[in-house]
Amino acid sequence: MRYLLVVLVFLSSSFAYEFYAKLEPINSYMVKSSVNGKVIYTNDKIEGYKANNSKIIEIDSYVDRIDLQQSNNKLKAINNMMKIEDKNYARLLKVSSKSGFEKDNQKLKVITFETTKADILVKIANLKDSIKNKKLVEKSNYIFNIAVKKGDYVNPGTLLYESKDLSKGKLEIFIPISDVEKVKDKTIYLNDEKTDLKIDKIYNVADSKHISSYKAEIIIKNPKTFSRLVKIEFK
């Protein structure tokens, strides 16, 4: 009886929890257009390589740039007109012979110009944002797929390209809820090799597909290859 108990304890302590997962980039991005316009440039040569402050896609912004220039000119004119109307209003206030009606009309002119200026400032901000969003530059991500070609017309929501952050890798596994506490402090082996890795994150809500499991993530720094199947053991 004692012998059987020792054997059971030994088996329990040496039991390994084994999983398999595909090593994926830490983050993947679906870059979609936020504007309307015609594609005037696609950097097809960067596809399949890491970007280095590289322009990936450019959408025609010619009309926006002209509109921005004219809006800035209009803003300067409005500012000058406001200065004149403000001076006129200040003079009217000092003239006792002027009626309250005349003074109120002059004040309304000043308010109208202030409202017009506010509208122009909003338009300028929108134009700047639109121009910025029509030239897409990637700092260092891997460009996985360019989904549009020069000459295509895109709308907000159109997929432009996909990119991936290859600085780290991520293994996602689904651990039975009853075993989560048991594996937290165990040593992680990848493809039978001992590591000093730990579980980076456990989502303490049952997965929608694996309804009796919690999703867990293991992060690997600077992996050499991606999309390979990895055996994960907790011993």
Rank of each mutant, 00 (worst) to 15 (best):
Ile124Asp: 11
Leu160Pro: 10
Lys184Gly: 00
Leu136Cys: 05
Lys201Phe: 11
Phe15Ala: 03
Val9Glu: 13
Ser130Asp: 11
Ile232Tyr: 11
Gly157Glu: 01
Pro25Ser: 10
Ile26Trp: 11
Leu8Thr: 04
Val137Gly: 05
Ser33Gly: 06
Asn133Lys: 15
Leu23Thr: 05
Val110Asp: 12
Ser33Pro: 12
Thr115Cys: 03
Lys117Ile: 01
Lys170Ser: 04
Gln106Pro: 08
Met81Lys: 12
Gly37Arg: 08
Tyr41Arg: 03
Ala125Gln: 13
Leu197Arg: 09
Phe19Asn: 00
Ser12Trp: 12
Asn53Glu: 02
Asn133Ala: 12
Lys168His: 01
Ile199Ala: 01
Arg228Gln: 10
Asn133Gly: 03
Ala51Phe: 10
Val183Met: 02
Glu18Phe: 08
Val148Tyr: 13
Lys87Gly: 00
Leu229Glu: 06
Val180Asp: 01
Met82Pro: 02
Thr158Arg: 08
Tyr89His: 11
Phe174Asp: 01
Lys164Glu: 00
Ser140Met: 10
Asn88Glu: 10
Gln106Leu: 07
Lys117Ser: 09
Lys182Gly: 00
Ala125Thr: 12
Leu93Pro: 05
Gly157Lys: 10
Phe10Ala: 02
Asn105Cys: 02
Glu162Tyr: 06
Gln106Thr: 01
Asn155Glu: 05
Tyr41His: 03
Ser227Gly: 09
Glu162Thr: 12
Thr115Asp: 10
Ser33Thr: 11
Glu181Phe: 07
Thr115Pro: 04
Glu217Met: 04
